[in-house]
Amino acid sequence: MTDRRNFLGRAIAGLSTAMLAGCYDLDEKPWFTGALGKVENLTREAQHLFAGPDTLAPEFTKADIAPVFRANGSLDPGTPEYKVHQANGFRDWRVTVSGLVDHPLSLSMDQIRAMPQRTQITRHDCVEGWSCIGEWSGPQLALVLAAAAPRAKAKYAVFYCADPMTAEGDPDHYYYESLELSEAMHPQTILAHRLNGQILDVPHGAPVRLRAERQLGYKQPKYLQRIVLTGTLDGIGGGKGGYWEDQGYTWYGGI
């Protein structure tokens, strides 16, 4: 009896070890990562059931603003081109809107500042787990996109940025991200050029960054230069819809 118990005990221990080892291996099996990708779609669709296109993220009061808003990811693009822009106060910085639109745009910072502004005190949630509350100001992206007149086929807004993410030996590439058009048109999705009443500084994405308040931080790119409306994310960057997505993060960033 004791021997048998020992044997069974060992068998169970062995089996659970094998199962755990199996779990570690599963990360590399396409069928498994494919299934996890399906879960991402399930999560996105379930969340959309409850959070309609106009459901607003919670907004806070000035008293809630974090004394120091943590800057994360790229803290300074540091390229020669960016340094020139920095030196002349981003006078020549342009944000262009192109792709599946009837009226492509090229906006200067003065034009962006001259549009109707939205100011919102919101909570920034990093995928790592921390949060910071800050006050952001800028025009709603919906206004900018409306001026560009998106075509019916446009499904995604792709954002191209000035911060290089090139690892050594890789071809040149810069940070990019993308959102569903409905999320890009959300009332709290703004082209933010002010943080806590100050002109946006370099660590936080000067001169202008995206705020999409129902999304995690990596979905809100800094140093924004180009917005392209497309019908598909295929063939852009690594094809997954963003720099971090190409590194394995989920494209849906609402959770």
Binding site: F50, A51, A57, P58, S131, G254
Partner: peptide, 24 residues
């Protein structure tokens, strides 16, 4: 309560626990 999109749908969720970081 840690999901920013669900916090938009159900603002009482993080509030119930004293905020998102408390919920975490």
């Amino acid at each position: 309560a840690m999901s920013p999109t669900l916090d938009a749908a159900f603002p009482f969720l993080p509030w119930l626990f004293g905020g998102r970081q408390s919920a975490r």
